[in-house]
Amino acid sequence: MASEGGLSIDPMHQFQIVPLFGEGPLHWYTPTNQTLWLAVTVLAVIGVLVLGSTRRAIIPGRLQSMGEVFYSFVHSMVEDVTGHEGAKFFPYIMVLFTFIVTANLMGLIPGAFASTSHIAVTATLALAVFLTVTLVGLYKKGIGFLAMFWVTSAPLALRPILALIEVISYFVRPVSHSIRLGGNMMAGHAVMKVFAGFAGVMGIGSIVPIAAIAAIYGLELLVAVVQAYVFAILTCVYLRDAVGEAHH
């Protein structure tokens, strides 16, 4: 592809999903390159959170400390944002955050496949959050959950308009929730690929794009963690609507 001559950069090629074995058609169960990196993500999670804590040491080692910091961080986030009522959703938030942050970081390994740069992945996560929040809210508060759209602190005349806006923003949530994460991941990897393409054809001058890649890589590490955090904390905020007292 790059050998077509001249500057031919295909930054999207890295996101191509191909079967892991052979060239056969892509069934829904076919193991792909994405499947491989999802497996790597799962193994990394097990490595840090399970193998790191096998010794159950009172004075933790490095890996165990990592797991504990991770645990405490997410636990306090869930408790701070969703309140005491939401604390029982901690395992779900933990699964979400653990998966996203690990997949983001694994995707940054050179040559890896970034699972979270696919809208299919982030949309599934966001939709799961959306459905959970909606169902939990309706189950916990019944029809009172809809009071969230009726802004009682606003003048009566404005309330129907605000309700319409609130409803629209509520249903837009999963879209923004998923595109924010997927878009960030995709853009970062695509930009690095573009610079890598420059580096391939610039000869000695390629030192400039290589330096740029190093800088962007550092930024992407930050983005990987921050976007996972944003995803998790937004999930907590949405959950607060469902379980906490009304905040409008």
Binding site: M12, F15, I17, L26, W28, Y29, V45, L49, F99, H118
Partner: peptide
């Protein structure tokens, strides 16, 4: 954009759910 190749979505979602379920049980 490979992201918009909806043909791969069932495959992606299936393996994502598998990964999430494994992580959920492990955690």
């Amino acid at each position: 954009m490979p992201q918009l190749n909806f043909g791969t979505w069932p495959n992606q979602i299936f393996w994502l759910v598998v990964a999430l379920v494994i992580i959920y049980f492990v955690l």
